[in-house]
């Protein structure tokens, strides 16, 4: 803890290589504090996320990275108390008046374990649209094809769209979950260790998919796999003990970290 306090006095922990005035910032957090009950779980994370980039959140278990991610689309509602501002395209979405369902539609989420619903693949992808009153078969068909193609799983499942999604392999299921999240046309995609339950081949395919998706979406991904963060992301945030310690371009975080703690973590001397 003492270490961390020292660090706070050093000004240059969060280094942006872009000019925030001119660049399109999709998401930004200010003075964020997250409490579980009365315990402060997460603070000191004033971060900016640039449009059409992949930002990786890394750090040891319990460092607060998942808690932070889940706050971004208000998935912590009812679980934790979130104070401070969460700006989505400049609008603070962390206020009671905001319609949380619309927020979550625009800021989609993919979870650690593939969690397809006990429905057909087709219904998995179109379910949220149907709940929003879209029943036109042609529209739905088009969405299914586009999103499954975007998630790079169309070729494997196009002949079995009516099959239960529970029968898919882990990698395929996770992609269907991505397609499902894309179907409601979000801007931002939050991924919470999406590859932790997948085998190496599926993981590689998933990463390729995400790189492709970056063109249309702003992606924030939590991972505890440092190689993955290094391979995949444009920017990296290192979290530890409930704080964001360092933010920089991924390459710099991994090669020339500004903070000793980050250095220890990325070089594996942590603990």
């Amino acid at each position: 803890m003492q270490n961390t306090t020292e660090l706070n006095n050093k000004p240059k922990r969060f280094i942006y290589d872009f000019n925030p005035e001119e660049t399109d910032i999709t998401m930004q957090t200010k003075d964020l504090e997250i409490y579980y009950g009365k315990t402060l779980a997460m603070h000191n994370a004033d971060l900016k996320f640039q449009k059409n980039t992949i930002t990786a959140l890394i750090g040891p278990s319990g460092s607060g990275k998942s808690t932070f991610l889940r706050a971004l689309n208000r998935m912590n509602d009812g679980v934790a108390t979130v104070k401070g501002e969460i700006l989505y395209q400049g609008v603070n979405i962390n206020q009671p008046k905001i319609d949380v369902y619309e927020v979550r539609r625009r800021i989609g989420m993919v979870f650690q374990r593939p969690n397809p619903f006990a429905k057909s693949i087709y219904d998995n992808v179109t379910f949220a649209l149907q709940r929003r009153g879209i029943h036109d078969k042609k529209t739905l068909d088009r969405v299914v094809e586009t999103t499954l193609k975007q998630a790079a799983v169309w070729d494997q499942v196009k002949d079995s769209l009516n099959k239960s999604a529970l029968s898919l392999s882990g990698g395929q299921a996770q992609r269907v979950c991505i397609a499902r999240a894309l179907a409601v046309r979000p801007d931002v995609l939050l991924l919470d260790e999406p590859a932790s339950a997948l085998d190496p081949v599926s993981t590689q395919q998933l990463e390729a998919t995400l790189r492709e998706l970056k063109k249309d979406y702003t992606i924030i991904i939590v991972t505890h796999n440092m190689q993955q963060a290094a391979r995949l992301s444009d920017y990296t945030v290192f979290f530890n003990m409930g704080e964001a310690i360092e933010y920089n371009k991924t390459r710099k975080v991994f090669t020339r970290p500004k903070v000793q703690m980050t250095d220890d973590y990325v070089s594996g001397n942590f603990g």
Partner: peptide, 26 residues
């Protein structure tokens, strides 16, 4: 499993829709 609920909520569905259309069928 709880991740079914999370999946529904993550799509911007209400808790009620999630339970009626996802958890109950499951």
């Amino acid at each position: 499993p709880d991740d079914q609920r999370q999946g529904g909520l993550g799509l911007g569905l209400s808790k009620y829709e999630t339970i009626i259309h996802i958890v109950v069928p499951a």
